[in-house]
Design a protein around this nucleic acid. Sequence first.
DNA 1: GTCTATACACTGATAGAC
DNA 2: GTCTATCAGTGTATAGAC
Lengths: 220, 220
Amino acid sequence: MSSDPRPQTKREIRQENERIILQAAEKVFAEAGFGGATMQLIADVAGLPKANLHYYYSTKEALYRRVVENIFNIWLTAADTFEASPGPAEGIGKYIDAKLEISRSHPAGSKVWANEVMHRAPVIQDYLETALAEWTDSRIAVINGWIDKGLMDPVDPRHLLYMIWATTQHYADFGHQIDTLNGGAPLNDAQWADVKHNVKRIILKGIGLADHDIEALRPR
Amino acid sequence: MSSDPRPQTKREIRQENERIILQAAEKVFAEAGFGGATMQLIADVAGLPKANLHYYYSTKEALYRRVVENIFNIWLTAADTFEASPGPAEGIGKYIDAKLEISRSHPAGSKVWANEVMHRAPVIQDYLETALAEWTDSRIAVINGWIDKGLMDPVDPRHLLYMIWATTQHYADFGHQIDTLNGGAPLNDAQWADVKHNVKRIILKGIGLADHDIEALRPR
DNA sequence: GTCTATACACTGATAGAC
DNA sequence: GTCTATCAGTGTATAGAC
């Protein structure tokens, strides 16, 4: 066993470099789009020679695919909070909170996803048709169950989900517009709390939950 | 005086060609982004030689700027339906309808705008700071007026507007994802009617309007 | 006003020394 | 595993004949 602070086997070097490159690529792809991003710029951000990128990821498209896959997994795992809740107030409320947290912590990832979908998902179309479609159907079933129990209004679960996705991701994808309308400054902690409160308030009340159900979710 | 069915003065030729190029550019920029779009592809879609594009628009960026400006004006004029309404049920309800109509009729424009904002608005930052900011402030004042009159719940008008923008534009910007989750087919007339009904229902009820206020908006 | 041919710059990708 | 030098391909933009 080595006590060297930088043991750096070849395997560790590879993992570390792949992580650095992936992080730089997410940022650059988010800001410039696929076509606008250059391997040179990603290399500069990563602090590595351009040739090294090609050593770890054969092509620009392969690197991009890894970035999108990485983001997709963040969405999916984070969305698990949606389930295992007794009713819509907690289930949907926590889901909205989680999605807004991701928009704040991973704005670049959200933007890369939006870019990919807006360009007709040339790289991850298979994900849309399989993983996302299955996830969506299962959540629609949960919501329909809540509706059948009379826990919420009989809205179309699909459009409810779209509204949640759209609204929560808007704070990441259109973050620049929001910041500009905020006087040029990013939202602070209090403002993010306002976002969560207002979004949950409107949506939860909009699907028929009583005020006291919503108020019970307020952090204290 | 000429009775030629194609009189085509130089001025008319210019107007017609600029219109054709602008329309082709909007489509290509929406599908490929700024970096991914090529002047060659825009020329092919427009049915003109590539050099002619440079004759009418000096640079690729100048052409792109015209496309974004064009879209921005569609947003603004269409948003006028928001005002001149006695209360939130009609004012916000009609605004949601109008925004959704635009998402269906001008999806390419919405995507170009989204792309531009996601990349930090390199071309139309001045629009965000002036025209959009002023428009937003004036609408916030209207909503606050409704709140003061007790016509709706005291939600934050800014986040209400963001929710409306996000949700309505989602059906254009993420149209490919929605179509995929719809079995690969675009939404039909009945499904678009469902969208309008569900979005208005959740948001209007979410800001405290009574069921009969919302029901009164339903087309008959 | 139209269009072919081309200049010039840049990008993705690779070869090969270290 | 690292990195300099370089190739091949493509993109924007322009020159100049028609």
